[in-house]
Amino acid sequence: MNPLSDPLSVVFILSSLMSVIAAVLIVHHKSIVYSAFFLSVLGVGNAILFTLLGFPIIALFHLSVYVGAAVTFILFSVVMLKEAPVVEPPVKALAVIAAGVLALIMVKIFSVFSAEPSFLLNYRDLTALLVTKYWFALIVAAIALVTTLIEAITLARREV
């Protein structure tokens, strides 16, 4: 069957390409501000993939908390900073080899899972789990987010 005849496959291919191209641009773009912007593009691509997997609530959470808050925080902060030099070319060649070998190993391991995902996350199941089984982790996450808020306020109030 031609994968282009299925609309979901087309969406998968487009969002995957978007994510991978955004990831390459994050690493290679000259401007650090644009790199931070492409991180938000990667977040949007990933959110589409989460929806295709049957996790639309997680996708919305990813968009609102990760893309909407974390990446925007980086984007506004990097405006205050400047670039530092990159490592020498020999290390770069070694990094390309390391990343390639790692990708091959992961593809080999993951090729075992060939099933089709047929799952849709239920909002009630998720909230029930969060407030019963994972309540402590939820409190820790909330406290961690409050500390970030305090950091942001401290940074904003301090004179440069």
Binding site: P3, L8, S9, F12, S16, S19, V20, A23, L42, L49, L52, L53, A99, G100, L102, A103, M106, V107, F110, S111, V112, F113, S114, A115, E116, P117
Partner: peptide, 15 residues
């Protein structure tokens, strides 16, 4: 799409 396709994209991003 099979799960292996999503995992393949994940591997590329990881690398």
């Amino acid at each position: 799409m099979e799960t292996s396709c999503y995992l393949f994209v994940s591997s590329i991003l990881f690398a």
